[in-house]
């Protein structure tokens, strides 16, 4: 393993989430510790209502955990269930998001949607434009820079969303069913993109998915069931794990 592969970019300790109190108490995420390394693609599987979305919102710093600590990249973000860093800033700098639908901003064109991730963190427009064009061209969207989301195909829009998630070189990329609305071929293309990006940028990619067709492209599989997260299988980066 290279030093990069051994670098832990996500470290969760005893993360849990409880909703409600008394008889209405629901333990959506039971205490669990896990890590993700730079360059890894980790799939999170589980049926609906198993707690995948809860885990994603905690890792995405949208909802706080009830207990536990979280470190993203070099920064301790959550300590004993409380935020100890500027969460907005952490989301801008350390996290990339990809969703089932592309979730692009409809009034920005492809290039602007990608630039946005940089400019929200005060990167100058000239620099953000250059970087956005470079990444979009690398994803085969060089001729679609000025197309509005409504003019992009599903696959194109998803590639723009991936570009937006990666352009600021985040420590982790959280992807929620990114291949669900794509056919098998495009779904594999997207997962391959994630693999390449994870290796190239040293980011950990956590993919919540139901799509078993692409699991051969992930490094690890975590399974959620009734709020319990378990390691399903593990393969070292570069090898293929089959669930």
């Amino acid at each position: 393993m290279t030093p990069t592969q051994t670098n832990i970019v996500l470290s969760a300790e005893s993360l849990s989430k409880v909703y409600g109190e008394g008889p209405l108490r629901v333990e959506a995420l039971k205490p669990k510790s896990f890590t993700a390394r730079a360059g890894e693609v980790v799939a999170i599987l589980g049926p609906s209502g198993s707690g995948k979305s809860t885990l994603l919102t905690i890792l995405g710093l949208i909802n706080p955990p009830t207990t536990g600590s979280l470190r993203i990249g070099p920064t301790q973000v959550i300590e004993n269930g409380r935020a100890v860093a500027n969460l907005d800033q952490q989301r801008r700098q350390q996290i990339g998001f990809v969703f089932q639908r592309s979730n692009l901003i409809p009034f920005l064109n492809a290039e602007e949607n990608v630039r946005l991730a940089l400019e929200l963190d005060d990167v100058p427009p000239a620099q953000s434009r250059t970087r956005a064009r470079t990444i979009l061209e690398s994803l085969g969207l060089g001729k679609r820079l000025h197309a509005l989301p409504s003019r992009l195909s599903g696959g194109e829009a998803q590639r723009v969303a991936i570009a937006r998630a990666l352009i600021h070189k985040p420590a982790i990329v959280l992807a929620d069913e990114p291949t669900a609305s794509l056919d098998s071929h495009r779904g594999r293309q997207v997962m391959e993109l994630f693999r390449e990006a994870a290796h190239a940028q040293g980011a950990a990619v956590l993919v919540v998915t139901h799509d078993h067709r692409t699991l051969d492209l992930v490094d690890r599989i975590l399974e959620m069931e009734d709020g319990v997260l378990t390691e399903k299988a593990y393969a070292a980066p570069g090898e293929t794990s089959h669930a």
Partner: peptide
């Protein structure tokens, strides 16, 4: 929806 997305992306 766009505003929610902006907040998710960490917009100040």
């Amino acid at each position: 929806h766009s505003l929610a997305l902006l907040k998710l992306l960490g917009a100040r």
